[in-house]
């Protein structure tokens, strides 16, 4: 459905952030994109959704193809109309608007007014808590509620591909669980393809159908969640596990010598 071929992204004409990044997102699946801070995960999403321009970034090489159409030179608003919706990192709700107004803004690109209003109810079914808060100013919602609102806004646009940028950021573990379950439900019930960017490797591998691991601007590993879980490097660097049973000790000098094999 979506494929990135060897894309290169440069900020401010000098800073090379993505260095030949490639990945595939098949229709109807949940694809995870993992990586540490500064790996280029958010940049990848922005390159897809056309949000690089306001930050002075540019796709300088390679191509992004969505349903057979090149989209890497399109405006953000056209890309949303094509059916790609990015839920930005850090929730970014419209603070001075009410919950319901936020949802209406989410459905901005739709032309079917009556159906869009009905879909507000659908969002409330996924997130009953938002219904209680429908006339409240969004800036005063709790962090979890704001994240729900951010996802609800995306649902309002009826996207074919929903991209979530760190939905777990700053939330309590229980809430994160809840939100991941809803993401899974959205994927199953609405048939929305999902590209999930996360730092929380464990949870992501739990819901994803396929996952990529990114480091300094390119994909270094990819595979089915079960295979990745079994990979010794992934276990150590992303899941914080060592060989079964043994606790990690910093006394083992060996640890410092060990490097991620793909970095050499």
């Amino acid at each position: 459905m979506l494929s990135l071929n060897n894309i290169e992204v440069i900020y401010n004409d000098v800073i090379l952030v993505l260095k030949g990044m490639s990945m595939e997102v098949p229709e109807g699946k949940i694809v995870g994109l993992l990586g540490s801070n500064g790996a280029g995960k958010s940049t990848t999403l922005k390159a897809i959704s056309g949000l690089l321009k306001p930050e002075d970034g540019e796709v300088t090489d390679g191509g992004i193809v969505f349903k057979g159409e090149k989209i890497h030179h399109m405006d953000a608003s056209d890309i949303v109309r094509k059916g790609i919706f990015q839920v930005m990192e850090g929730r970014r709700v419209f603070e001075h608007l009410t919950t319901e107004e936020n949802l209406i803004a989410g459905g901005y690109t739709r032309s079917d007014g009556a159906q869009a209003r009905a879909d507000i109810e659908m969002v409330y079914e996924y997130f009953p808590r938002l219904k209680d808060r429908r006339h409240q100013t969004a800036g005063y919602l709790s962090g979890g509620e704001q994240q729900m609102l951010a996802i609800g806004r995306a649902l309002m646009a009826k996207p074919q591909l929903m991209m979530l940028d760190e939905p777990s950021l700053g939330l309590a573990p229980l809430l994160v669980q809840e939100i991941f379950e809803i993401i899974k439900r959205i994927n199953q019930e609405q048939g929305t393809t999902i590209l999930l960017v996360e730092q929380n490797a464990n949870l992501t591998l739990g819901v994803a159908d396929y996952a990529y691991i990114m480091e300094s601007g390119r994909i270094v590993l990819d595979g089915y969640p079960d295979d990745l879980r079994a990979n010794a490097d992934v276990r150590e660097f992303y899941l914080g596990l060592t060989e079964v049973g043994s606790r990690k000790s910093y006394r083992e000098v060996k640890h410092y010598k060990r490097r991620k094999r793909w970095l050499s």
Binding site: D75, V93, F94, Y108
Partner: peptide
Amino acid sequence: SKEGIAMRAVADDQQAALSMGIS
């Protein structure tokens, strides 16, 4: 109105507004 709400949305957070297809 939708346009009016979009206008206030832009006032709040331009980039987020952009991400929902508001020009």
